[in-house]
Structure formats: C-alpha cells, structure tokens
Design a protein around this nucleic acid. Sequence first.
RNA 1: GCUGGCGUAGCUCAGUCGGUAGAGCAAUUGAUUCGUAAUCAAUAGGUCGGGUGUUCGAGUCACCUCGCCAGCUCCA
Length: 644
Amino acid sequence: MNINIQYKKDNKSMEFPQGTKFLSIIQGLDQGLKKTALLGKVNGKITDLSATVEEDAEVEIFTFEDEPGRDAYRHTCSHVMAQAVQRLFPGTKLAIGPAITDGFYYDFDPVKPFTPEDLELISREMEKIIKENYPLERFVMSRQDALKFFEEKGEQYKVELISDLPEDAEISFYKQAEFVDLCAGPHLPSTGYIKAFKLMSLAGAYWRGSEKNKMLQRIYAVSFFNKKDLQEYLERIEEAKKRDHRKLGQELKLFSIKDEGPGFPFFYPKGMILRNELSAYWREVHKQWGYEEVMTPIILNRELWERSGHWFNYKDNMYTTVIDDEDYAIKPMNCPGSLLIYNSELHSYRDFPLRWGEMGIVHRHELSGALHGLMRVRCFTQDDAHLYMLPSQIKDEVAGVIKLIDTIYKKFGFAYHMELSTMPEKHLGDEETWRMAEDTLEETLKSLNAEYTINPGDGAFYGPKIDFHLKDSLGRTWQCGTIQLDFQLPERFDLTYVGEDGQKHRPVMVHRTAFGSMERFIAILTEHFAGAFPSWLAPVQVKIMPITERQHKYAAFLAEDLKSAGLRVEVDDRNEKIGYKIREARNERVPYMLVVGDKEQEQGAVSLWIRGKGDQGTVNFLSFKRRLKEEVAERRLALMEKDE
RNA sequence: GCUGGCGUAGCUCAGUCGGUAGAGCAAUUGAUUCGUAAUCAAUAGGUCGGGUGUUCGAGUCACCUCGCCAGCUCCA
C-alpha cells in the first residue's frame, strides 16, 4: 500500500510505499538535502531519519541550520562520548548528557576522577566510534523492565530518572553497538554523521543541580557540522578571550584585583575616569527622569537589619562588626537606609512618586568560587534607587523604569534580555501578596509589549523582580539592571503617607538599578568595546605626538588648548620614532592621535589619526577641537569622520 | 563552598632525571632627532604564591594553606 507524503517546504506531494524509511523519503523529496538532512518532522512530530513512515503525512526536514537538527546532532555526539567513556573507564556511571549552545556535555560519576589527559584518550575513542558508523536504534521498554535493566548495570542515576518519569511516559532507549542509554531522542541515524567535535573542559556539576547532591564530573564539548565551522568557532573563542575585561583592565591600566583583597577591586586613575564619566551621565539622566539623590551610611546597627529581615534572610552574605560592644553590619543593600530617610518625615499622597537614587557602596560575602573579575565581586557600588508610590502608580512607575533602563542601555549600544523572577523558597510575606506583585510586573511588561522569560523562584526575598541581563565577550549573561517590587519592607518599617481622606495608608516601594553595579557594568562595557571606548568614556581622548624635539613647544601648546576645552589629552614627547608612538597609542586604544612635525607646526595644523580608520592626513586644529568637544558633549558612540 | 586545573621578574612564558633560575616585552641609563604599528646598546630586576616535610641538596617530590582559571551552586 502506498502513502501520500506532502513536503512542507514546497507543498509538493509524492507517493511512497508504506513503511518507507524517512531517509529514503528525503531522497525522493529533496535530493539537495540528501547529505545534510539530520532529522525529520512527520505530521508535526519530530522523528528520527531512521524511523519508518506508516501513514499519509506532511513532512519537514531539518539540517544543522535548524535548531532541532543541531540539537539532535550534538545530542548524538554526547552519546558517542558516553560510549567512549564507558569503553575506556568501565564502571563509570552515567547521569545526563544534553545538547547546549555550540555543543553538549555529559555528567559522569567516574570510579576515579578524569584528568585532562583522559580527554585526549576519550576523544580518540570517539573518533573510532564515529568511524565504525554504528547505527542508533530506538526501542522502548516497560517501566519495570527499564528499572531492572539499569539496576542490574548499577546505573543508579538512570534508575532515579526513570522513577521520576510520569506514570504514562513512554520509556525509550537508544542503542549503538554495545552502548545503551535512556533517552527520549531524537537522534541521528548513525554515529558516522558526526564530523567535527572537540572536548573542551572538565568541570564539577552537582547531580540535578543541587549542592546537597553528589558532585559529578562534567565534560564539556563543542561540535559542528564540519571541521571548518569548528575551527572558526575555536578562533572566535580565542578572539573573545582577548576582550576579557580582566586582561584589558590590566593592559589598559584601568583596574585590577589583588591577592590582598579577593573580590575587592582596585581602580586606577584611568579606570576612575570611566567610573566618573559613567556617574556623571547617570546623574544627568536621572535628574531628567525626576530623581533626587541620597546617601546612606555603610555601617548600620544590627537592630535595623533585624527589622529589615536581612539579619535572618541574608546573614550568610553579610559582613558584621562590633562597635562599643554592639553588633553592626556593613550594608549589603541600600534599602534600609533609604527607608530611614523616608520615615524621618511625614509624607502626603501629593509627594508621590518619590524617586531617590543612591550610588551606594555595598559589601556582600560571595562564595570564593563565585568571584569573577569585576563581574562578581564582594564590594560594589550599586546605582540604586528607591521609589515610593501609591498602589495606583505602580504600573506607570515600573514602566517608567523599564524605559529608563532601555534608554541607558541603548546609549551604549547594548542588546539585553529581560527575566521576570518569582517567589523564592526563602521569602517574607504571604503568597497572595507575592502573586499579586508578580502579576503587576507581568502586566506592565505585557503593556509595553516587552519580550521576557520567567525565572521561577529567583526573586529577592522581599519581592519579585524584573532582571535585565547583558552578555560578556564569551556570551555568558550577567544580571545588571533590576526592578524589584516590595510590599514587605514598607510593612516592616511601618511606612505611611496621608491620603486624600486624611487617613494614614501604606505606600508601595520599588527598588531598582540600571547599571546594576558600576563594577559589573564597567566589566561589560570593557568587553563590549574590547577596550576601545567611545571618546566620551576614553581615559585619554587625544594623544599628541611630536615628530622631533623641535615641536615639543607646539605640542604642549595644543595640549593646553584642548585641556582648557575640557578634553583629556596626553603628549608623548618621549625620544622615540613616530611609528613606535603610534603603535603604543593604538595599543592603548586612544581614539584620536595628533601627529605634529615641522609641516604641521608651520601651518598651525595637525595630522590626524583616528582609531580604526588610520591616518587621515592634515586637518585644521580648531575645527578638530570643536568637533571633538561636540562629540564628547553628546556622548556619541561613533568616532568622527575626517570630513564633516 | 564544591569538582578539576594552574601559581617562576611589572607582563607573556621557558626551566629535561631533584644539582642552586632564563628569554622576549616593559623599566632604567646612554647614544640616535627620526613623518604614521617596535632604533641601537648597556644596566637593573626573582626567598620560584606562603608554610611544613622528604632529601646531602627542592622551582621540580609529598602534605597543608592562600590566590587565580573553567564549571556547579549562588548572584548586581
């Protein structure tokens, strides 16, 4: 009997005998995909290419260009790795091995920990398995048989996984040669499909992501459809490493972290220029958006932290000290201080919304293994603000903050994504209030047509939040901006305002940051621009380079002139050749170089070199100065062109 | 905190079998006055992260400790 197959791509249909393998169907439908097809979809259901088709169907074909195709490819690759590991290290127990961005990993519980040398062995065994081109066969077992199968093999993690599957779940397996793994699939038809992979690193990972469980050994790998793409990926990673803010921070003399203070960064003179420029921009934009600024103490009495709930909910992260026999805490957050300012006078509904910003220095004890350059430190300055408002103003205020953060991120050309984080296990207040707060945030996001994902259980202990994530040079994301709705602290601090009715009411509070922290933001900024900051942020905006000693006076005169215009200038009057000076200034990522020799001096001109564009020839000095002043005043991202 | 790896000059790194530490860049000094990515020469710089042990002898081996890197957990 024949079945009718309709190809979704071009809507053409063909007849095939019932039970034809998907692979053969592809040959008939789309010769061009014969070599690149990895996975199919039959009547909306993802299907292995080795499966047969039994009924009339609409089909789709996936290649490595499609996410399902890529995932299946990498997932099969992870099975190959697991097979290699079990061949080389019998007794190694298997946990899970999914596809991830750019590759895959597999978590193992080995008899003896793997070493980096083992990766080489595993890699070679994988090559063998790929060369053998074992077909992957799918089959199902009853729950009972499946449990028995893995219990006999001593695969305790698989037993646990099966036990947690829903009652009605089909328990499927994939087998290649002697290797069998519990797996929902889908998979490639055979191991020979794998063309390029590289085992990258060895790392610990808790079973099921909980630190209460045993730590397993995870092998990370990347894989691509061909060797060239793999090579390009590896080169891209190498390039990205050169943008690492920890490396650039040192090279550009911006900041560093010393052994004497793990997690407590040092900012050098050039790094302080970045910080101060960012702060100045921040103050300017916040003033425009109706914020006032406050400052609260770094050390405050224990009683305050008990009242705020931090002493009981955040103590592990707090540094404490004793003053005159009383306990004090170094603030991990700025909110309690802000609340004390609020309570120091009476408020009317007419005052709202109150928006109080604070560049607040906070200290938090982070686990030593979590520290990461400037991205994750133990002392940082939050560009915090606390907003006090009527319940009826929440949506407008939250929407306003979202727009403000968007404005700020766009200024730097950052792409970001938002997450809505909901009630964590450890929290203050009742669930009903939480759900209401979560709903309010979600409704606000929806009203702005914003794209976001939900991050369950990741809210602050006092309220749900909207987080803004930015990417570092390797694509890892870091939470920067955050908007946190808080019904708890106003309660705990008994905040009130006098309403229209003359009665006392409870205001609502919003905590928020835009940069997140100066430290993390500077790290992101450094990696984003690879140290080549726009001129308004560049520690040195102009470097003046005389060709010989004859021009030293002229160079000094130009420098003074630019400095008096508020620009940051250095003169490189060392006794070096011009090529050497240019090379160094380039390495320092100085946006503009002015080369002055006899010719320029005679004309009262300068020879301009623009970062990324090279030698621009002779230009008029006054017009250069005017244009640079403008560029910096407007905080433009792009450097100027030679001609206006 | 946990798993694995790594700590040698300011930076990047070499150092064999355990035999008393080396290069390039940077720095300093001198010469050179030069036109768009490295002028030449000389000099100086290290309790080999710290500690304890093994040994006639430790950068090298063992143990402890601190820090860093990747990841997990956690987070701005």
